[in-house]
Design a protein around this nucleic acid. Structure first.
Length: 690
DNA sequence: TGTGGGC
């Protein structure tokens, strides 16, 4: 269904869709118009999920390339993905078919493809009716939009009616592999250590129960299949509900999104819309939206993913989530916002645009969330974030709650982040290397000239499952995917120069297994939750080790295992020390050449630390630590979630029980071997993942 | 340097 819709308005550039009957492949000689490399990768619209038969036979033939390298069985392992064409169609059609508004998956396509009667329509929200705040029409039966939305009336939350179709769209059907992550049971993570510092850290919760959580939220959590809060959720729920600011380090895929959505929505369901809400003139047409929650993330796809989650947990509630990002039709986003916007998920650029147009005010923001916060505050994004947070009408730190989440949090970025936080609690969830236990990391020495052939070897060897290949530049993404396609591999690419439609399509093809090889730039490095990524290849290593951490984190998620392979050569010696350290910490095999190049490296590059990581940006210890604890040589309290036995009390520095002690008073410190001594580069650890 | 992100 999605693919079919994608046919609308295709330009020449999209002509890969045209030869539907040929599985979307052109013989090279036949091309009369330029077809971008990635375009040649796609199977035609509505192509069935690849089966051994379809790929084996049709694809190479249509490709007309001889395909000596084509090894069907390996890439056709759709079975491990558990897809059938029918399932895909069900899901997708659910996403597009009828919902009056944004549909699931990457279905936000509607926002840039104004198809007739697009998804934002389907029943005008009669302006704002703040008397019965929320979703007019939902009260007495079916909402006009058919989404089963609730409202806030007379100080009470009145959930909308259930809607089977919407439920299936949001929560999937049983065993829907595209919803796999939902409902992963995190009970096995019970022994994950947690470090919390700051004044008065509250006790963690252990279940999704009322109190403190609102019943309506709990119902939606159950629909989503979550059973027990993940470690980060256990801590973030009471912290956020207690009104505190938060800086949290937790691997994506560990329930981070729920970590902020749960407490925010729960509060919203209990307290209703902000009293200070929209100064609606008495006129029907209010064109400016006043969201109470704002979630910012660095890429469009991530924003879209968060929005999809938000819709689940906001189901039938008075809270209306909206999403805005660039590359998509702004008109439909405006219409969407006009119908009500309580929780807004956005990329920075488009948000600024909408603010400038006077269509969004941040005056009512109660919650500000920066996802992938270290990225949002790095050189590239920081000015925009600062403008949004400090340069518009958002309440100051005292008037809002600010939450930051990331898997990595370099020291310098922590320092910067403090500008946006007030008396925050620092939370680090996870055991050193816990992720990597699920990821087998390999590093191979490969000269640039040999990369392609080594990659082919790898692709032949590790056939089953999805393979995500990272490169450093957009150009390389195109040329490598082009190469792979010419070699007969079902590959596609995603990077920032592709159109939004191409990006979403590539991701969808990858996700669904129809195109199990994806060549990507950094755009896909963070946050994306793609089930069944079996192998991450760092064809080009990033220059920053944190990027490496995020990249390999696309596999081995939520208890699954994964493989990571990095191509290393002397051009990467800038990261050699950090990489070395990382591998050791994660108990991975350390190739000898790494050690020796690291020694070479220490000879030059100046300073104590070889390579680029000057400025104290290198990895130090394994755990991210609260930067506030470095000042006086003090360390944050150490809270072993299940270690100390005493259910949250009695950690060294006053976690839980002894409020004032916090992380400032040099608590018990780390167990031996937990916090490494500071590296030579600087005052100490700064970046990490759990 | 490159990668994201508005028009």
């Amino acid at each position: 269904m999605a693919d079919q819709l994608d046919m609308n308005g295709l330009s020449l550039k999209d002509s890969q869709h045209a030869p539907q009957g040929q599985n979307g492949f052109h013989a090279p000689g036949e091309r009369s118009a330029y077809i971008p490399p990635h375009a040649r990768s796609s199977a035609g619209p509505r192509a069935p999920a690849p089966t051994a038969a379809s790929l084996d036979g049709a694809m190479p033939a249509a490709n007309g390339l001889g395909q000596s390298n084509w090894a069907p069985p390996k890439y056709v392992h759709i079975p491990p993905l558990g897809f059938s064409t029918a399932e895909i169609d069900i899901h997708r059609s659910a996403g597009f078919a009828g919902a009056g508004r944004g549909s699931g998956g990457w279905a936000n396509a509607q926002s840039f493809t104004p198809r007739g009667g697009n998804n934002w329509e389907g029943g005008a929200r009669g302006g704002f009716d703040r008397n019965a705040y929320g979703n007019p029409g939902a009260g007495g039966g079916q909402s006009a939009r058919g989404s089963g939305e609730g409202q806030w009336r007379d100080g009470k939350h009145i959930p909308g009616p259930a809607n089977q179709r919407v439920e299936r769209e949001l929560f999937g059907v049983p065993n829907d592999p595209s919803k796999q992550q939902t409902g992963i049971n995190f009970e096995k993570y019970d022994d994950i250590p947690v470090e919390a510092s700051g004044q008065g850290v509250p006790e963690p919760v252990t279940t999704f129960t009322n109190p403190p959580l609102d019943d309506h939220l709990i119902a939606n959590i159950e629909l989503s299949g979550y059973k027990v809060p993940t470690p980060v959720q256990k801590y973030s729920i009471p912290i956020v509900m207690g009104g505190r600011d938060l800086m949290a380090c937790a691997q994506t895929g560990s329930g981070k999104t729920g970590g902020f959505l749960f407490p925010i929505l729960s509060q919203a369901y209990q307290t209703g819309p902000s009293a200070a809400a929209p100064q609606q003139g008495g006129f029907a047409r209010q064109r400016k939206a006043y969201p109470t929650s704002l979630i910012l993330a660095p890429t469009r796809e991530l924003v879209s993913q968060i929005y999809d989650e938000a819709r689940k947990f906001a189901y039938r509630s008075w809270v209306r989530p909206c999403v805005v990002y660039g590359g998509a039709d702004i008109g439909s986003q405006l219409r969407q916002i006009e119908r009500g916007c309580d929780l807004l998920v956005a990329t920075p650029g488009r948000l600024v645009d909408l603010i400038e147009r006077g269509r969004i005010s941040l005056a009512n923001i109660k919650y500000l969330v920066l996802d992938e916060a270290d990225r949002m505050l790095d050189m590239g994004f920081e000015p925009q974030i600062r403008r949004i947070v400090e340069g518009e009408d958002m309440p100051p730190t005292a008037g809002r709650q600010t939450l930051m989440f990331s898997a990595t949090f370099p020291r310098d970025i922590q320092m910067l982040a403090r500008d946006f936080l007030k008396d925050y609690i620092f939370l680090s969830v996870g055991r050193v290397g816990s992720t990597s236990e699920n990821i087998t990391q390999k590093v191979e020495y490969v000269e640039d000239a040999d990369k392609r052939s080594v990659l082919l070897d790898i692709l032949h060897t590790h056939g089953a499952g999805l393979t995500l290949i990272f490169v450093e530049t957009k150009r390389m993404a195109d040329s490598l995917s082009d190469f792979l396609i010419n070699q007969g591999f079902p590959a596609t690419s995603i990077h920032g120069d592709r159109t939004q439609r191409e990006r979403e399509r590539a991701l969808d093809m990858f996700r669904s297994g129809r195109c199990p090889i994806l060549v990507a730039t950094a755009v896909a490095a963070r946050g994306l939750d793609i089930p069944n990524v079996k192998h991450v290849v760092n064809y080009d290593l990033p220059t920053d080790i944190d990027d490496y951490v995020h990249r390999i984190g696309r596999t081995g998620r939520a208890g699954n295992t994964g493989i990571s392979t990095a191509f290393f050569n002397r051009g990467n010696r800038g990261v050699v020390r950090d990489l070395l350290e990382l591998l050791k910490e994660a108990n991975q095999e350390v190739p000898a050449f790494l050690e020796s190049i690291a020694r070479e490296g220490s000879g030059f590059g100046g300073g104590g630390r070889g390579g680029r990581s000057g400025g104290g940006r290198g990895r130090g210890a394994t755990a991210t630590r609260d930067v506030r604890s470095f000042g006086g040589g003090q360390r944050p309290a150490y809270a072993g979630s299940q270690w100390g036995g005493s259910s949250g009390g009695g950690y060294g520095g006053g976690f839980g029980g002894a409020p004032a002690a916090g992380g400032y008073s040099g608590g018990g410190g780390y167990g031996s071997g937990y916090g490494n001594p500071s590296g030579p580069s600087g005052p100490g650890p700064n970046s990490s993942w759990w």
